[in-house]
Design a protein around this nucleic acid. Sequence first.
DNA 1: CAATAAATGCACTTCTGTTGCATGGTTCCA
DNA 2: TGGAACCATGCAACAGAAGTGCATTTATTG
Lengths: 138, 138
Amino acid sequence: MIQADKFMEEKGVRPTAMRLLVFRFLAESKAAKTLSDIENTFAKADRTTLYRTLKTFEDKAIVHQIDDGTGMTKYALCEEGCNCELEQDLHLHFHCNNCKETVCLTEHKIPYINLPDGYVAEDANLVLKGICDKCSGQ
Amino acid sequence: MIQADKFMEEKGVRPTAMRLLVFRFLAESKAAKTLSDIENTFAKADRTTLYRTLKTFEDKAIVHQIDDGTGMTKYALCEEGCNCELEQDLHLHFHCNNCKETVCLTEHKIPYINLPDGYVAEDANLVLKGICDKCSGQ
DNA sequence: CAATAAATGCACTTCTGTTGCATGGTTCCA
DNA sequence: TGGAACCATGCAACAGAAGTGCATTTATTG
């Protein structure tokens, strides 16, 4: 486990108490979390603060947003060397219909798609839905 | 162009004036439309009616929903023989970052993805983002 | 220590999606 | 044909998430 406060300073984010809590919470949870998830975990914290904390993290490439189709934006820590903005780093996400959790499948990149003439792809989002390893009992 | 009212009756939907308008609007527009789009097009119509019209269409497999990551649900007519609920019919969607329109690439199916052990895919959503054929000037 | 900048907390707004309920129009059968 | 039952429509209101403005507290720096 890396030193959270040092890591954040390297990324150009002041490691306040609240930010460290949010960072550690995301680091310990394998699945992506919504703003509400975090809000419920730290009941004393204000939603706006958490909202802006996540936004700051996103700007500094500490977390990335995930749109898994549930209608709620989720956040997950960027893996080491994750370049969310680069097309070659577009990993896919898996949403479990059973436990409702969404995880990054960092090793699984989105395959190249052959588009019709005139279409230029710059970005992609692929969400697979089904049963995750925990819920399939394997 | 098919007979809209006959088509709707075959699908088990009463072809009211409003429904025909919405159907024709979707049929004439190549891109997927949001509820707000339709609301603005038919200013006299009530939002709830349009909402339920789209829901009815969806239930009867006349339209399918698209989540292109813009945060607003979009709707597009199902192609002939489109079985939105079946995995083998999962076509992908393209969202243009320039004109902001989203289109179905019906011919382009989502490729098979090799998942880690224990993961079982039941559904998938793939949205490519970039520049569409109209905007790339080709 | 003072001045400045950043982070936090509260209130409020906006937007999309959604539901309840009353009303108006169709269909269908006695 | 009359009316009961059903369906579609319209109005109002609500819920949840996202986002903004502003005042206050906390941290940083000269």
